[in-house]
Design a protein around this nucleic acid. Structure first.
Lengths: 212, 212
DNA sequence: CGTACTTTTGAATCGCATCAAATCTGGTGG
DNA sequence: CCACCAGATTTGATGCGATTCAAAAGTACG
């Protein structure tokens, strides 16, 4: 493990047994770098610390189909039990990634009960988040999506944004312009309050017009 | 276990140890029925066989926020390790649901290695599907969503629909009219072929207009 | 045969994407 | 310290595609 950087504090990583942490490799990836390709046997479990990594697959008609976008967190959990990747992983934005040798990772899951429980807990959590995101994206209006996000990702109506609004807009399935305008309108109407990277529900009941 | 109905063939259920299968309870739920409420300790793991069950939470502004919609599969996997529900579960459409006593479910996961692996495999699969769905929902055009679905849920470009188009349209985040029109247009342009509940990619390269 | 639901087509409306451009920001190097 | 640049933020104008409302035709089922 490269010691030029200290071990990150993410709780998913904290539960790892020392042997696994020690086996981690720090990777600085440039834009367009390929972490793995379809068909390869997984040798590494990747954890994104910064930048944007994408799982993609070439569709039958030649277009690129995105399966996952990650700016923070494990990249392809399913690779833990696959014998070959079903998609490509590329760095859409440069960033840094942790790599865990997958054999050691698997062994740790077998041997270490605590880590196994933490891993299962992480999986269950990701299912929850991804499903909530899906339901959010079926909402037709920008305002509804913002409020859904505020309530499902925030703590008691208060949200600490860990990313730029532009990145957030992509997560919300909106253009960045639409997000800026929606935030401005919701704040102006007293539905939310915005300061820096903290957004909070302002207690005001939504009038039907705000969330049309 | 109520023997008036035979054990379903879903592979997620097939991997269960006999003791767990035997402890299952068949539930016929009417529209609006509550499977559980927020705050209650989970006593049962639910598996939806038919109908539409929803996980919802009242948002701060009094609107109902949907966290998951299920027509087939486990309802709230996270309840396996929660001490209290974080949301309500209601039957949006009447249907039938399997209920597994959660203590027995947990015990089976601890004791039965095969079942535990199948469960983990299921979790990982659900993450993949939910993330793919999320990415699909960020696509701006109806045609792109249909094709993304065809490729991520179909087998080699062939999709066997297990649900009505109306239900499918909800999963795609489209109005049913938009879906009907899109299918008609894509078929007419030779991009896909539709017969009954089988939809297949017709091999024709997409012209940019089709998937604008 | 009647009822409920899905499927299908039509027409009008609206919110968001898109294109454009200005301003603001943080970081870099001279 | 300032000039400069890349990126994020913000506002404006326009067009398009999906929603919405409406209604008809098809289908399953008791």
């Amino acid at each position: 493990m490269n010691k030029t950087t200290e071990w990150p504090e993410n709780k998913e990583l904290a539960s790892m047994p020392y042997a696994l942490q020690a086996a981690a490799v720090w990777l600085e990836v440039v834009q367009g770098a390929q972490l793995f390709r379809i068909g390869q046997p997984p040798r590494t479990m990747f954890y994104v610390l910064s930048g944007e990594m994408r799982l993609t697959r070439m569709s039958l008609d030649g277009a690129e189909m995105i399966l996952q976008r990650t700016r923070c967190g494990f990249l392809a959990e399913a690779s833990i039990e696959a014998s070959a990747y079903h998609c490509d992983a590329v760095a859409f934005e440069p960033g840094t990634v942790l790599g865990f040798p997958i054999a050691i990772f698997r062994k740790a899951l077998e041997v270490d009960v605590t880590f196994r429980k933490a891993w299962t807990s992480h999986l269950v959590q990701e299912i929850r988040r991804a499903r909530a995101r899906s339901e959010r994206l079926t909402l037709k209006s920008a305002a509804k999506r913002v409020l859904h996000y505020l309530e499902s990702e925030g703590q008691n109506g208060v949200l600490k944004l860990e990313q730029s609004r532009k990145a957030w807009s992509a997560e919300l399935g909106l253009s960045h312009e639409a997000l800026y305008r929606t935030l401005a309108r919701l704040e102006q109407e007293g539905v939310i309050s915005v300061e820096e990277n903290t957004i909070r529900f302002a207690g005001k009941m939504i009038n039907s017009a705000s969330v049309r």
